[in-house]
Simulated scan of single mutants.
Amino acid sequence: MPNPKVSSEKISGFSSFFADLKDPRRTHQGNRLYPLEEILFLCIAAVISGADTWTSINLFGKSKLDWLKKWYPYENGIPSHDVLGKVFAALEPGAFSRCFISWVNSIADTTRGEVVAIDGKTICRSDDKGKGKSAIHVVSAFASENGLCLGQLAVASKSNEITAIPELLELLALKGCTVTIDAMGCQKNIAKTIVEKDADYILMVKGNQKGLRDQIEKLFSIKPVASENKDSDLGHGRIEHRKCEVINQLNFLDDRQEWVGLKSVIRITSERISKDTGKGTTQIRYYISSLDTDAKSINRAVRSHWSVENKLHWVLDVVFKEDASLKKKDNSALNYNIIAKMALTLMDREKSTKKSKPSKRLLAALDDNYRDKILRV
């Protein structure tokens, strides 16, 4: 229970969503020296403050024990790094993930038309070849405008994304949003699930739907384009020109009735020119969508999809050192992934400074008041 000397309002936003999470430790350990809520709070506060290992989390806790007691009693002090590792190796990640999703749903403010990108990432070095354990693959939902990870599910490999995506969609509040997924998610049941959630979809079509792709290519050779949009982007040593074309006359598209909500097919032509060499490459991508003819919005949504790479995956790798971690034991890597996403969410919602994420973590480590500010958001 929280320290009675501290206002429960301070931690209610955290504890109310994680208080019922089942403690994986054996009941015969009695009252346990370190309550699970205290361990979770310690880890999130430590990761916000720059800790990336169980040892550094333990060191943070020992040095900030007086501050931690503002929030929880910590009557028995701080658990060792071995205790932390064992708890998170045993903690059931599915239940932890559902708690995370409920918490994010309570604070997320997704707006109509917001792009929610569904994308997978393999956590490098989470495998254990000696024990025949494969690396963990996580499918995440990322609200690009708000910069929030709305939830995630772990799967055995990238090929299992097809079954994981509908399960993840069912857990999310998506009304009014536009869900974007790469070719792996171009499945009829996934389109149906998105529409049933009162959302729209833009699904990439590639080789896994060859018949559909061939028909879309043919449509663009015989049907007029209903809407077109062009934009350009300068950065990363290149110039990129994109043209988005939309067709909504689908009477020649076989099986179109089996794709729930289908209203348009899309062709995006990207031309990239190197600033150094002047050489260019052209790529054509095709999509299906429940949106109609607004090529400008569709072009923006497709471009927003890739924000999940540099605003979530890249941050987890570079800022939170997820891929450099050696958390191999049982559920450790996946549970750390959830903790890092919670820390990232809290940091992104703290708007009093425009400092970079590494600078925010350093400031949180040095300044108790700033850490308070992040955790009270």
Rank of each mutant, 00 (worst) to 15 (best):
Y201N: 07
D20L: 10
E228A: 15
K133H: 06
C149V: 07
S221V: 07
A295V: 01
L326P: 02
V308N: 03
L326R: 15
D317R: 01
K296F: 06
V195H: 06
K360G: 02
T193Y: 08
Y336S: 04
D254N: 12
T55Y: 01
Y74D: 07
A135M: 01
V116Q: 10
T55D: 03
E92N: 15
E145W: 06
F142T: 09
K206V: 11
T293R: 14
T353N: 01
A191W: 07
V205E: 10
K175G: 12
Q187S: 13
S304M: 10
P24M: 07
V265W: 09
S307A: 02
Y336A: 01
L312G: 10
S270Y: 05
A108P: 12
E309N: 06
D127G: 15
L366K: 00
W67R: 02
I123Y: 08
G13P: 09
D200Y: 10
G211H: 14
L344H: 11
L203H: 10
I78M: 01
A343G: 02
E228R: 14
V6M: 06
I136L: 14
A183E: 09
E114M: 13
K223H: 12
Y201H: 06
I118N: 14
D128T: 06
D368V: 00
K175F: 02
D198T: 09
D294M: 08
Y74R: 03
K223S: 11
M347P: 04
L68E: 02
L253S: 03
A164N: 13
E37A: 04
L326Y: 08
L262H: 11
K22N: 15
K5Q: 03
A89W: 09
F88S: 04
P166C: 08
T193G: 04
I101A: 13
F320P: 01
A343Q: 00
V265I: 15
N369S: 05
K321A: 05
S332W: 01
T281R: 10
F252G: 02
E37S: 04
L316F: 02
L250K: 03
D254A: 13
I284N: 13
T193E: 15
I11P: 00
L172P: 09
L253I: 06
D66V: 04
V139E: 05
F320S: 00
L253Q: 00
A365V: 01
P224D: 13
K129W: 09
Y370M: 02
T277L: 03
A95Y: 11
N31V: 09
L91Y: 10
W306A: 08
N337Y: 05
I298T: 09
K296I: 10
S232E: 15
P2C: 08
I239D: 04
K373I: 04
G85R: 06
Y286D: 05
G237T: 03
A154N: 07
E167Y: 08
K175P: 12
G280T: 14
I118W: 12
D367E: 03
Y286L: 09
D233M: 08
L169K: 14
W71V: 00
N337H: 06
A173Q: 15
I247V: 15
N208L: 11
P93K: 08
L362C: 00
H241S: 12
Q152C: 05
G50W: 04
V138K: 01
E38F: 04
